[in-house]
């Protein structure tokens, strides 16, 4: 784990007086898939949203400790610039009510790109990377909302890729999809990990086992503050966890 892309040091997060995350230290490796697992309410989604500072949008949120991207403190960066570098895919596919083309061109356009040829190039490349090109190449003018759920989610992934991030955060990206669409997304995640650092929140143990290289297990104690219990290679976590709570969770004894 020498090439750490994202690092947190004694990171805590509060909603007003309520502590949601407590003293989290983690080193997320570059160009690997890291899964965040744990029971509901353990703060893993909140933790994920720390990496692109989407928590800033919630009034009353306060943080302690630091989060580093490539060794730089996230909270000293311009959040707008940060989010260009750290893309995000949400639990529910959320394409804009615009054409497929305009959905993907949205990110490049907000950064000031106007050249139509360049945009076309980016749209095609992003759709190919998201394994959606063949299905939609003849209907780029169609509304993104007319696609199926699985296609919509791949559109959102393509949309995130178009901004050329180095990190992609995924918040239960397959939670609202059927099994076949889920498998396609998982394949895609696997392929993308060659070039991107991917952090994925999932409730689905099998999914964590299938797609991730590393797994972090989150748990809440009696104070209800989320903590990192264990972080290791996925196969270690699933076969030989060092913490009893991790083992109980993996084997389905609670959660």
């Amino acid at each position: 784990m020498n090439d750490s892309k994202l690092v947190t040091i004694n990171y805590s997060l509060y909603y007003g007086n309520f502590q949601a995350l407590k003293d989290i230290n983690i080193k997320i490796p570059e160009n690997k898939v890291t899964a965040l697992i744990g029971p509901s309410g353990c703060g893993k989604s909140t933790f994920l949203r720390s990496f692109n500072r989407m928590n800033d949008l919630i009034p009353g949120v306060r943080t302690e400790g630091s989060v580093l991207l490539d060794g730089e403190d996230l909270f000293k960066m311009d959040p707008v610039a940060l989010r260009q570098n750290v893309g995000m895919v949400f639990q529910k596919p959320n394409p804009f009510p615009k054409s497929i083309f305009d959905n993907i061109a949205y990110g490049p356009r907000v950064t000031g790109l106007k050249d139509r040829h360049k945009l076309e190039e980016i749209v095609e490349r992003s759709l190919r990377s998201a394994a959606l090109w063949d299905e939609v190449k003849d209907s780029l003018g169609k509304s993104g909302l007319e696609l199926s759920g699985g296609q919509q989610q791949r559109l959102c992934i393509a949309r995130a890729l178009a901004v050329e991030p180095t990190v992609i955060l995924m918040d239960e990206p397959a939670a609202s999809l059927d099994p076949i669409a889920t498998l396609r997304i998982e394949d895609l995640i696997h392929k993308l990990s060659e070039n991107y650092t991917i952090v994925i929140v999932t409730h689905n143990m099998q999914q964590a086992g299938r797609v991730s290289d590393y797994t972090a297990f989150f748990y809440t104690d009696e104070t209800r503050a989320g903590q990192l219990v264990e972080f290791d290679e996925t196969k270690t976590i699933f076969t030989n966890p060092s913490d009893q709570r991790t083992e109980d969770y993996i084997t389905g004894r609670f959660g």
């Binding site: 989407m54 707008v80 949205y106 990110g107 995130a160 901004v163």
Partner: peptide, 20 residues
Amino acid sequence: NYRQGSLALGATKWQTITKV
């Protein structure tokens, strides 16, 4: 989620308002 989607792509709040 339209707003969140736009902000997560690195749009400013004003861009999000006018473009989405």
